[in-house]
Structures are given as structure tokens and as C-alpha cells.
Design a protein around this nucleic acid. Structure first.
Lengths: 101, 101
DNA sequence: TTTATATATTATAATTTTCAAATATAGAAT
DNA sequence: ATTCTATATTTGAAAATTATAATATATAAA
């Protein structure tokens, strides 16, 4: 048995928990699931996910500020896509665990 | 483009988000990390993780009620271990993404 | 039986998250 | 210039989470 938890483990757990907190919301997960298929405009995401304009924008802002997502403005639309490799890997793993046959 | 999100996706996202909510706490993650190495008594967990008695017990109760953990009482100690294969897989995946070289 | 140890539960206050409504902005179309 | 469309931001209330303290329980030891 060792003494205190390696400080490193605690710090990592804080970092990871902060990321998981953002994932741990049904609407944000639905948005991310949708984006794993490729970029979507905000309006498309609203329709596909059934989330209101304001709430959608708030979720997207949070994930953008946290570095999960980036945007690409074309015409008068804003397209969002997953820009964080770690998020893609986690989504893949969640798919394997919960959605695979 | 399809219409509404498959209801199945929404439902799965709710289930998964509920699980991630429990994971998304630095202390609970630290506890789970520790338990990936094998079962530990409550007292051992308190020392290793540096978490107070009451808070530890509340975290353990939550994870036990959610089916992540089970207990084994021996002597006058309660040993906790991870009993949900999905949690083990997620922890492994988080390790791969955030802690691997 | 009393006391000590290990763990669990309850209550409550503080903090954080979430949703909804209103308002703001920016570019395109008229 | 005005209006419309797409998106973002702000605000405030409701709900959920977290920490802390107090109390409870159950078993072992004295």
C-alpha cells in the first residue's frame, strides 16, 4: 500500500472530471453524437437534436470555450465540428461500450 | 439529412449522461482510479484518496446504488470493488486517452 | 455492559447547472 | 435604410450537486 495518492493522479482526475462534466449532459451528448458524423450548422443541430435556439447556443459555447469544438463560418451559417481528438476517442469508446452489438 | 434524432439515440444519451455524471467528479474519479487496482476498504480509500469519512461514504453510496460498485464485508471492514464491466472499460479508455505515454 | 472502531445516513447550507425568456449582433436580402 | 435570418449573450429562477456537521448503526474489544 502506498501513502497519499500520487499528486499526479489527483491532478489528472481534476482535469478529466472537468471534461467529463461537460460530456455528462444528455443534450450535449446528443450534440456530440450528431457531430461525430461530421460538421453541422447550428440550425441543423437544433432540428436534429430538438433543442431550442438559446439552449443550443449555450451548449455550443461551452464546448467551444472548452476546446471540444471549433467553428467554420460560411455563407451566413456557422458550422461546428469536433476539434479535440480526445473527445472523438471518448465518444468512440462510449459507442463501443453502450451501442455496439 | 434525416429528421428528428432517432429516439434511440436520445434515450441512450440520457442513460450514458447519467453514468457520466457520476464519473464527472474529481473525488469519485480518484476513488474509481484507486479501485481499478483492486478492492479496498472504506478506510483505505479515505487515506489513499484524502477524502473525509462522510464524503467518502456518500460517494461510495452513490456509486453502489448506481451499480458501479459492490461490497464485501469481512471482519469489521467493508471492501468495495468495481462490479460494472462498463465502468472498467470506460476507466481503461480514459487511461488510454489521458494517461498513456 | 461499556467503549471503541468502522461505516452509513440525514440535514442543511453553499455552490453549480440548467432552462427559458429577452435582448443583442451581424450579415444578407429587399 | 429597413427587414429578415442565423446565431450569440445576458439574466434570473429552478433544480441538482457538493461539502460539512451531526447523528446513527453495527460489530469488536475491553
Amino acid at each position: 500500500m502506498q501513502g497519499a495518492p500520487p499528486e499526479e493522479m489527483k491532478e489528472r482526475c481534476e482535469t478529466i472530471a472537468a471534461i467529463l462534466k461537460t460530456l455528462a449532459n444528455p443534450q450535449r451528448l446528443t450534440i456530440l453524437c450528431t457531430l461525430t458524423e461530421g460538421e453541422k450548422s447550428v440550425g441543423e443541430l437544433q432540428k436534429i437534436c430538438g433543442i431550442s435556439q438559446s439552449v443550443m447556443s449555450q451548449h455550443l459555447a461551452r464546448m467551444r470555450l472548452q476546446g471540444f469544438l471549433r467553428t467554420d463560418k460560411r455563407q451566413n451559417f456557422v458550422y461546428y465540428y469536433i476539434s479535440d481528438e480526445r473527445i472523438l476517442k471518448i465518444m468512440q469508446s462510449l459507442h463501443d461500450v453502450f451501442c455496439a452489438e
